[in-house]
Each structure stands twice: as C-alpha cells, then as structure tokens.
Design a protein around this nucleic acid. Structure first.
Length: 290
DNA sequence: AATTATGTTGCGGT
DNA sequence: AACCGCAACATAAT
C-alpha cells in the first residue's frame, strides 16, 4: 500500500537496476494485471529500458527504441516489484502487508502476476496479492493524459500556494478527503495525510474551505517535509516488509499519529484517537488539532 | 464471522 | 457542470 515515498523508493531501485537493460520476455500470469490484454506485453520484447519516472504514485517506464511506447504501473494496495539476479540475490524492492505470504524467498509465488526477463538473465517480478494494481502498455498520448490527472506534488519548488488555497476553498468536503484527492495534490495517502494534519494542528474533519491561507501554506510545507523525510528513511514499513537490498523502510519509527491510537500526543499528552473520516481509519489528537 | 487494510474509480445523488 | 459520499474491486489477517 505504497504512497509517494514508497513508490519513489521503488522507482529509484528500478532505475538503478533495470535502466539500460533489454527485455527478452514478458510472461503474464494474471490477465487483470495487464487490463485483460495478455498479448500486449510481448511488444516489450527486444526493447531497452530508457527511464523510469514517477508522477504521484504512478510509475512510467519508457524505452529507447520506441518513442510512442510506455508502461504505466500502479501498485495500488499490494503491488510490489522484486528484482532478482542470476544468483537469486534480491536487489529490488516492493511493499506488502505481510511478506510471510508475499515475500517468502520463492519467485514466482502465488501472487506473482507478471515476470519480465532481461538479456543479462536478471528477472523482475511484479507481485500483487489483491489484484488492484496494473502494468499496462500505453501510447505517448495516453501517458500524457494519465500525467495530467495529477495535481502538483508538495515538494515542487514551483508549487503555487495561492492556487492550492483557491482549490481547497471551493471544496465543501473534509480537509482529509481533499488531501487524499490526487487531482488536487499528488502523493499523499492515508498515513501521510494523518501525519501532515497533526503537524499543522488541523483536525481531519475540518471542512477544506475553512482553512486559512496560512494553514494551507503550512499544510503544503508539512506534507513536503513528511514526504521528503519518508523517502530518506526508505519509506514506511508495516509488518515485516523488506525493501532495497532486503532492508525495511524505517519511517515507521518517525510516525507520530498513524497507528498510535491510545498513546499520548507528543505535543500535549492527550491520547491519540482513531476515528473514521473520509471513509478511512483516521488518527489524530483531539486536543491540539482544531 | 465480521471487520480491517498505506488506493483508485465509477456510480447515483445533489 | 462540478462536487459529494460511498460501493466496488480481491485477498488475507485478526
């Protein structure tokens, strides 16, 4: 269930390990993963990976030999990549609820949906337990359309705070629902929204249109800091998730409210509550978040 | 057995 | 024409 930091960690790992490699075969193990077009991935055979980019939580793979061919990958809740070299050493990464089932040292396993093999005998596995994720071929036009559905990412230095305020000001929904909307702001998910709102002392069920300009600026800044720190920590890991070179992301240690219900708020000692906002489990301090 | 899960999308209603 | 809230997608753990 990766959010922007986890997807960025995966992107960096993939860029380091498969950029410049030539695809020799793509094996589709589950049709839904490729939008039921099981023959399409064969078009990747013989192509060399040029780059791996990320927009919000979406990965975009491009190829040296074809300007109009892209792969769009979304991990959704349980998608993960593992990159395995000839000697079976894991040097790729992914994310899972519980790697006892999803990452048991055997490839492929029951949740492996697609296998990409490269000319140097290395292999990339795409696993996705819940089958919400996708790995689909795209034209440049469709790729651009997908890109345009995302709002700006909070870390951008050209972020337009005034435009963001105007958008939020027109929203009647809760600030939490608004921050989860990827067309407004790209990258935050349930964990990092809760962490961001705690930092700026805003209650998750406040109406988005009640935030002041100063609060909106603070939200953007806090979101940026949270995402940047989470990337630096290798993402957030629950259960026993393993990451780059078999390391777990350590941002979990820095979480203040997510999963901390019943523990004292580090700012005011009031107990953190877990409620439901925007249909999601929501963690917050009822005293200092207003 | 029922509830929950770090994400998005499509639907009916406003 | 937006915008809103919620069910749906599919699987496993508690």
């Amino acid at each position: 269930m990766p959010e922007l930091p986890e997807v960025e960690v995966v992107r960096m790992q993939l860029a380091a390990h498969v950029s410049g490699k030539r695809v020799t075969s793509v094996e589709v193990l589950h049709d839904k993963t490729v939008a039921y077009d099981r023959t399409a991935p064969a078009r990747l055979e013989g192509k060399t990976i040029r780059s791996i980019e990320r927009v919000g939580k979406l990965l975009i793979i491009s190829f040296t030999e074809d300007d109009d061919l892209f792969v769009l990958v979304h991990l959704k809740m349980t998608g993960q990549f593992f990159y395995v070299s000839k000697d079976e050493t894991v040097v790729g990464g992914g994310h899972s609820l519980d790697d006892k089932t999803l990452f048991d040292g055997v490839w492929p396993h029951k949740h492996t949906r697609l296998i990409v093999r490269f000319s140097d005998d290395t292999v990339l596995y795409f696993n996705d337990m819940r089958l919400f994720g996708y790995f689909v071929l795209s034209t440049r036009k469709k790729m651009e359309q997908a890109r345009q559905r995302f709002g700006p990412e909070p870390q951008r230095d050209d972020f337009d705070d005034a435009a963001f305020f105007e958008k939020l000001h027109r929203r009647k929904t809760t600030i939490k629902a608004a921050l989860l909307d990827q067309t407004l702001l790209a990258g935050l998910g349930n964990i990092y929204v809760d962490e961001t709102l705690w930092r700026v002392k805003v209650a998750p069920d406040r109406r988005a249109n009640t935030l002041t300009k100063a609060e909106v600026r603070a939200v953007r800044k806090a979101a940026s800091e949270v995402l940047t720190k989470a990337i630096a920590a290798g993402g957030t890991t629950f259960q026993s998730f393993k990451d780059v070179e078999n390391q777990a992301g350590t941002y979990r240690e820095e979480l203040v409210v997510f999963g901390k219900q019943g523990t004292p708020c580090p700012r005011c000692q009031t107990l953190i509550e877990k409620t439901r906002v925007a249909g999601r489990g929501t963690h917050w301090c009822p005293s200092c978040q207003q």
